[in-house]
Nucleic acid binder design. Structure first.
Lengths: 134, 134
DNA sequence: TGACATATGCAACTAAGTTGCGTATGATAG
DNA sequence: CTATCATACGCAACTTAGTTGCATATGTCA
């Protein structure tokens, strides 16, 4: 999503385009891996309450996704057309994206059939050691 | 793992078999879905420091696994021979187990090959609506 | 059964995230 | 261009999961 689209989306939602929102959106957009609320606070110097509230707005309206690496800290990234997953290095904490939706889509269909369960979303992250840390 | 095995394992590790540990182990063992530290505190009336420390001991020695449903609360379950995943109902919070390791094993091998990344573990949970809540 | 290392409880702390409320400001009408 | 006003922001105080240091209690083994 580009800046202009961001502005238009905000208008459509009747939400104000504020400096805080613009900065948050830009940083999440330019971050090379999912970024935490705390890091946003430190990087743009906006109050954490605002950060959390604006992230929530973006989440609820599908601008961004939240990602969970199981360490009790939520991280955020722009919503991509192709949903993907991450390889998290347990040593250097580097994060890289991977994607393989076909298999999971098939699995989700099987799950729906076999368990009578409507899958809305899933959470899949891999943890291990990257190239440099093996 | 049975009670007798639990005692033997504790001996092997030169760790004491205390009432707190026995209770924690039993409750985690008999819980029908992954249980939080807080729930353990309430159910067995042992100090939370002890609960966390003993859970950590069990985790480190492979008696139990921790499970992350992305709500900032760690939950624990006995380690099964066959690693599995969960279907978490977003309405009634009911949790059921599912397993399909073959596909993921293959994916992990592909990941190792394509990304030069050694996968140690993964995290996969499905969220949606169960039979009763669809 | 006594000694002692280890486990427990307590209180205080940390860190992520939330809430209530008064003030500031972006969007819209005039 | 400016005034208005609902909405967004900042602040301080709170909540909750999990951690730490230390004094006391207790399982284990001789």
């Amino acid at each position: 999503m580009k800046s202009i689209e961001f502005v238009n989306e905000m208008k459509r939602l009747k939400k104000r385009v504020t400096p805080a929102r613009t900065k948050i959106f830009k940083i999440v957009h330019s971050a090379k891996s999912p970024i935490s609320a705390d890091k946003l606070v430190k990087e743009i110097g906006v109050n954490k309450t605002t950060i959390y509230r604006d992230l929530d707005l973006f989440l609820k309206n599908g601008f961004i996704d939240d990602v969970d690496f199981g360490d009790g800290i939520k991280r955020y990234e722009v919503k991509e057309e192709s949903h993907h997953h991450h390889l998290v290095c347990m040593q250097c904490k580097n994060v890289q994206d991977i994607s393989f939706e076909e298999n999971l889509k098939i699995e989700e269909q099987k799950i729906a059939r076999n368990n009578n369960f409507k899958v809305i979303k899933h959470n899949l992250e891999f943890f291990g050691y990257c190239q440099n840390c093996i």
